[in-house]
Design a protein around this nucleic acid. Sequence first.
DNA 1: ATGGTTGAATGTCAA
Length: 257
Amino acid sequence: MRIATYNAASVRARLPLILDWLAEHEPDVLAIQETKVEDDKFPTAAFDDLGYHVSLNGQKAWNGVATLSLMPPSRVQRGFGDPLFPEDARLIACDVGGLEIVNTYVPNGSAVGSDKFEYKLRWLGRFAAFLRERYRPDQPLLWLGDINIAPTPDDVYDSRKFAGQVGHHPLEFEALRRIVDFGFTDLFRKFHEGPGLYTYWDFVIPRSVERNLGWRIDHLYGTKPVAERCTSCEIEHLARSVDKPSDHTFVFAEINL
DNA sequence: ATGGTTGAATGTCAA
């Protein structure tokens, strides 16, 4: 299976780009984040025309996740299923052909010390518990999406500058480690070492793409049965350089399932 | 020097 993740920063604004990418790369699954649209306004028909099933957890204007799959999904779950936890549309989980797929848009966190940063840490803690409630580390499980954390100095263009700031903070590293300790392997790092390999480049920084001032914050994590069968994981840079790009690009893995 | 861009919605916030 070929499985990809993409923070679209509006699925409607990015629709032509996504359709082109699907036609060229023919993934079995595409996990989209920041769809920024309610489910009844999602461009479902355009993906249906390419043969994709569409599983949605959207909301108006912000957040929103969608999982496209050539095989029909089952066991679809939107959010944590916990009425006590403040729910915005950041998680959709489903089973595709026996592979459990959890697609998340982790809160950005805004700035260290803000309410949004506290929410990010609480969300990550709730997600660590969610995994242990719903899954086992010995089953085929893939967690992917916009993680909004650059977990090592190699994962951001200026680690010293951003040390202790949002996206590169020790409390985020600790929260992510608790999640990864469930039994995950970072599929991209299984194949690629070193700095300069990014998935996001800020719109605001002049010529951030050309200067490679980026962050690796879009990740795919597999349990052991997935990591063992994963034969490649690559970043697809072109989608960040075309007309009207998202500020993220695609990351995709091949898994022999 | 606290700038700059983008999208949703149409104020201004979020990223």
